[in-house]
């Protein structure tokens, strides 16, 4: 055993062990079979999903004569933004011919208050359920979650009657209330689980320090929950913006959200089908959720990274 302690001159291997052979990091080949399969599959799938979007974009940039040629995959010979302008400001739905712009502003007026209201209520709900174990908290939570499993369609008619009775049927505020209520189960679950995962001792320390229900919520919990708020905002903005069913049921033609208006433009049966305008209108409508994903996606990752720091 003693000779093991003798330092060997640099460059010589230990006695009896192979002197040459693998050493250092294992070499990796860029064109290994594994990489070809992996990236090949990814590229094929990505193309498959991007192709319809490509068709939409090129079609929306063509004039009607060019579309009639039938080469839907070919890039536009003559780029025109006319369909986009028309879709936004002068496409006709029924008697109105002011394009999607009205629907856009309606959707904004629906989405912003609905998102703010539902997240504000649901975050307090989740906080109360997670940290202030009041009597009947579990029962309340179960009832709320059951709500998430009942199909919306079942509740459409009763809600119509309720809104009519309180005089909000057909108004934007009526739709805002409906969206806020239907966001409640999933958002409450989201916030409750997040607040439950935060160390309980933090909450106890704040109580010993004398902070009350709202003090702890605003000064301790809120500053620590940016990531979950971003998740909730993504969920609500895209969900409410993309909603069609509630929009068409609970509003009137002058308060239709963008999705309903899009449907009316695309499905209008009179005259020539203007594919380029339809494509432009569809992209315009889908733009808001897309932007939300791209902008908040980065924020989201950053939020999670910031929250992951031990403290």
């Amino acid at each position: 055993m003693a000779d093991l302690a003798v330092p060997l001159p640099a460059g010589t291997g230990s006695l009896g062990l192979e002197a040459s052979g693998p050493r250092g990091p294992k070499p990796r080949h860029v064109f290994s079979r594994r990489n070809i399969f992996l990236y090949g599959t990814l590229i094929v799938v990505a193309l498959y999903y991007l192709l319809p979007l490509y068709v939409m974009v090129v079609t929306s940039l063509k004039g009607m004569p060019e579309i009639r040629l039938g080469n839907i995959f070919s890039p536009p010979l003559e780029i025109t933004f006319e369909p986009w302008v028309k879709a936004w400001s002068s496409a006709c739905t029924g008697l109105n011919c002011d394009g999607l712009s009205r629907g856009f502003w309606n959707s904004v007026r629906i989405t912003v208050p609905s998102v703010v209201l539902s997240i504000a209520i649901a975050s307090v709900n989740g906080y109360a359920l997670a940290n202030w174990r009041f009597k009947g908290a579990d029962t309340f939570f179960v009832i709320l979650i059951v709500g998430a499993f009942i199909p919306y369609q079942v509740m459409i008619y009763p809600i119509v009657i309720i809104l009519r009775e309180i005089g909000l049927y057909g108004s934007l505020s009526g739709l805002v209330i409906v969206h806020s209520i239907f966001g409640m189960p999933i958002l409450t679950l989201l916030f409750r689980n997040y607040f439950t995962s935060m160390p309980e001792e933090l909450f106890r320390a704040a109580r010993v320090d004398g902070a009350g229900f709202w003090g702890i919520y605003f000064r301790i919990m809120l500053p620590m929950s940016l990531p979950i708020f971003v998740v909730a905002i993504i969920l609500q903005v895209t969900g409410i913006w993309n909603d069609f069913l509630f929009g068409v049921v609970y509003t009137r033609p002058d308060t239709y959200p963008m999705t309903v208006q899009l449907n009316n433009i695309v499905n209008s049966v009179q005259g020539v089908k203007e594919y380029n305008v339809n494509m432009a209108a569809t992209i315009l409508t889908g733009l808001v959720p897309l932007v939300v994903y791209f902008v908040s996606g980065k924020l989201f990752v950053r939020g999670i990274a910031a929250g992951a720091v031990k403290g």
Partner: peptide, 24 residues
């Protein structure tokens, strides 16, 4: 009270941590 996991408010500086109870 002093807790096992320290339970310091992560978004506050040490000074704000110390003064939280007093500010409340």
């Amino acid at each position: 009270m002093v807790f096992q996991s320290y339970a310091l408010y992560p978004q506050m500086t040490v000074e704000k941590n110390l003064s939280f109870g007093l500010r409340v």
